[in-house]
């Protein structure tokens, strides 16, 4: 089974020059083995970015929250916890792009594409409530609540590409979140 799905405007070769680039690459196993490293890494990357803001403290909370959600998802849904996850930050001045890349199982790729299709077509406030009600009944994961809040509450633009993994099992998932720098800087 193979899934090919694109959500949002996924522009791989945007020729807008970035001002600042920062990337971390790690084995998801590192974070699974010590879960607190997720939050630590998110905080670190948020601090890194926050220095470019006039109101670093106000930017920090949003940045850390959004990065943490991306990071947790990339780690949780990595099929092989030894295959590296890449998290990259690109600052374009007006917008900040945060991109997480990981390889997931086929079943997750299908579920995720299904969820994104709902995100694309349904009212996001209704989807938020319905996912919470759904979560309450299932003992399973939070099924995209993190992504919903990023878009609904943090004004994030979301772009996702799901493609069959190159020369292997599973699917490559690239999730890119774009945040408005001006909004982040508002005290």
């Amino acid at each position: 089974m193979s899934v090919e799905y694109t959500f949002g405007t996924y522009d791989e070769d945007s020729d807008l020059p970035s001002i600042s680039e920062f990337e971390v690459r790690f084995m998801p196993l590192d974070l699974v083995a010590h879960w607190r490293r997720c939050g630590m890494t998110a905080d670190f990357l948020a601090y890194f970015l926050s220095h470019a803001f006039r109101n670093p403290d106000s930017a920090l909370g949003t940045l850390s929250t959004v990065i943490n959600e991306l990071l947790e998802n990339a780690v949780k849904f990595s099929a092989d916890k030894r295959v590296p996850v890449v998290l990259s930050l690109s600052h374009f001045g007006e917008v900040i792009g945060i991109t997480a890349t990981n390889t997931c199982r086929d079943a997750h790729a299908e579920r995720f594409a299904g969820f994104l299709e709902r995100l694309r077509t349904e009212d996001i406030d209704d989807l938020f409530v319905s996912q919470i009600e759904h979560n309450a009944e299932s003992a399973q994961g939070e099924s995209g609540l993190g992504i919903i809040t990023m878009v609904k509450d943090y004004g994030a633009s979301l772009a996702v590409r799901i493609t069959p993994a190159e020369g292997g099992e599973g699917h490559d998932v690239v999730v890119r979140v774009v945040l408005n720098a001006e909004e982040l800087d508002r005290a």
Binding site: G39, N68, I132, N135, A136, E142, G146
Partner: peptide, 17 residues
């Protein structure tokens, strides 16, 4: 509570439910 991830928000909403 400085940060709460989406799993925590799920848990908190269970209390609301």
């Amino acid at each position: 509570v400085k940060f709460m991830n989406s799993s925590g928000i799920t848990a908190l909403s269970r209390l609301v439910l």
